[in-house]
């Protein structure tokens, strides 16, 4: 028996919004530790890794490890039927071929359930090594989304250049070129507004705008985003989901041909 409950459907809606543009379907691996999802996007350029810890749920029970392959378009249709404040419960029997989403209104007067067929997805899991990154930048998630959106008007690629002075995002194309520099904040009233840089070595890497923009769909989940970079390895864009877990996106850098 698997059962996981969140007191507000909005969290699950935001999680789904953060992955559904990159992935058509994905396997949710459930264990007593929580729910894990790892999947490459359709073109295998980026990897999504989602962790929702069992202690972050309002109720969580998983008697046996369970892998649930879900069509995210179908899941999205179902979650649209929930109000943001509804309690959402996901349920499945052991070895089931369906999962049930149950939504309950705050006043308990409306209860709806939606059963969705599960899929058998043959997905390979990638082993992601622990890495010490040359540069780790933390910044407001909204600011990062804004930068990605603004720069994508100028080119298909963004160069992220990080030194101890700050981080620079650049793009260029037919229109011309654009540069956005962010310095480390010296003092801020609110922690979520801070820009911080931990640098061992400066890095300069090029990434595809469209993937960065897709990652920023996770912005509603978190005030801050963390960018981890080293030369010649994938960028990690991490959004922490308060009290529940995190979503990490890995993106292969563009390299000179």
């Amino acid at each position: 028996m698997f059962e996981a409950r969140l007191n507000a459907a909005t969290t699950l809606k935001k999680v789904l919004d953060a992955i559904k543009d990159l992935l058509n379907e994905a396997t949710f691996d459930c264990s007593d530790a929580g729910i894990q999802l790892q999947a490459m996007d359709n073109s295998h350029v980026s990897l999504v890794s989602l962790t929702l810890r069992s202690d972050g749920f309002d109720k969580f029970r998983c008697d046996r490890n369970l892998s649930m392959g879900m069509n995210l378009g179908s899941m999205s249709k179902i979650l649209k039927c929930a109000n943001n404040e509804d309690t959402v419960t996901m349920k499945a029997q052991d070895n089931a071929d369906t999962v049930t989403f149950m939504f309950e209104s705050q006043n308990h007067e409306k209860v709806s359930d939606y059963e969705m067929k599960l899929m058998n997805l043959d997905q390979e899991h990638l082993g992601i090594p622990e890495t010490d990154y040359s540069c780790v930048v933390r910044m407001p998630a909204m600011e990062f989304a804004r930068i990605c959106r603004d720069l994508s008007q100028f080119g298909e690629s963004v160069i992220i250049c990080c030194t101890k002075e700050g981080v620079k995002f650049s793009a260029s194309g037919d229109v011309g070129s654009a540069n956005i520099k962010l310095a480390q904040t010296s003092s801020v009233d609110k922690e979520e507004e801070a820009v911080t840089i931990e640098m061992q070595e400066p890095v300069s890497l090029t990434f595809a705008c469209r993937y960065l923009n897709a990652f920023t769909k996770a912005t509603p989940l978190s005030n801050q985003v963390q960018l981890s970079m080293s030369a010649d390895v994938p960028l990690v864009v991490e959004y922490r989901i308060p009290d529940l877990g995190h979503i990490r996106y890995y993106l292969a850098p563009k390299i000179e041909e």
């Binding site: 490459m40 390979e124 082993g127 390299i255 000179e256």
Partner: peptide, 13 residues
């Protein structure tokens, strides 16, 4: 510039 597969950076488990 070329875009490589993310899988080439990580080991298959």
């Amino acid at each position: 510039m070329a875009q490589t597969s993310i899988a080439s950076y990580f080991n298959t488990r």
